[in-house]
Design a protein around this nucleic acid. Structure first.
Lengths: 154, 154
DNA sequence: ATACATGCAAACATTTTGCTTTGGC
DNA sequence: GCCAAAGCAAAATGTTTGCATGTAT
């Protein structure tokens, strides 16, 4: 589904709106609001969290609409699911200029973004050659106990 | 919950049985069968798949029992969930002597195990120091299109 | 005006729990 | 025999769809 004619070049509301337009998709209040919420988020959000935050600005947008918009953004390559090892899906926008991985506390759930230290990106091309795969991407999360939750010395 | 007095030293039915005993847990037909299924599996299995395979050997064990046994094995550190980016959880046994990561085809779902090439394990200690986390582990999956599914040149 | 997007409601899938019965120790 | 584990059934949770209405183009 991602249309190579309209790549996302930077992470901004305007760039995403342009991409939607490029796919003949409509610019609606719900889409603008959800993208805006994701742009402001400092960690991946669940559908429920997105739904709540959208409701904060007035009347709630529908949960199914949140689901459909996130599915759309995912199919367009604008957003992606993040593995939080929980019972539901978490989403974040995909920044074409800056990759990051996640460090997640298994106790309190706090998410630390690890920017520009990815030990894996360079391996993807190697894997494509070695295994004959194409379009290889990765999902890398570290899980552990953050300093606040680690009670080894209490 | 994992009891340091009874670490899993190798991946075998006997070693896992010993670990269950060490925790005063009972050795039941269901537990033996599910561990045996997981030992035979060459890829992570969903609860439903485990349930099906267990049913194959006679009368079906209960789905809730499969769930409870997998939750137990996970809490003991014998098994772990693997992120397959699907609608349900997949489990595999954790081999204390040999780490592997996964290469998953987004089209057909085929899973390739990548043994002994993990580019990340060595980073865990660094992350513990840098971020003050403890007991850091990781989850790393590569997603792409396998040679059979890649239709770029057809 | 014409689709596409939304809201609402319901269906579906998966996970999880309560409680009685069974069986490992 | 005792208590943990299993079986059964139902609840809880999260995801997905159908269809009538609203709205961006």
């Amino acid at each position: 589904m991602p249309n190579p004619s309209f790549p996302l070049r930077r992470l901004s509301l305007e760039a995403i709106v342009d991409m939607l337009r490029g796919h003949q998709l409509r610019i609606t209040k719900n889409r603008l609001e959800i993208v805006s919420i994701l742009l402001r988020a400092d960690r991946p959000l669940s559908l429920e969290e997105i739904h709540e935050r959208a409701a904060g600005d007035g009347q709630a947008s529908d949960y199914a609409t949140v689901f459909r918009i996130m599915t759309l953004l995912e199919n367009l390559g604008i957003a992606q699911k993040v593995n939080m090892n929980r019972g539901c899906s978490y989403y974040e926008l995909l920044n074409p200029n800056q990759h990051h991985d996640h460090l997640i506390c298994t106790e309190c759930g706090k998410v630390t973004l690890m920017i520009n230290s990815c030990p894996v990106s360079s391996v993807e091309r190697t894997i494509e050659k070695k295994y004959g795969f194409s379009h290889v991407r990765h999902s890398l999360e570290f899980f552990g106990e953050c300093p606040d939750c680690n009670d080894d010395y209490r």
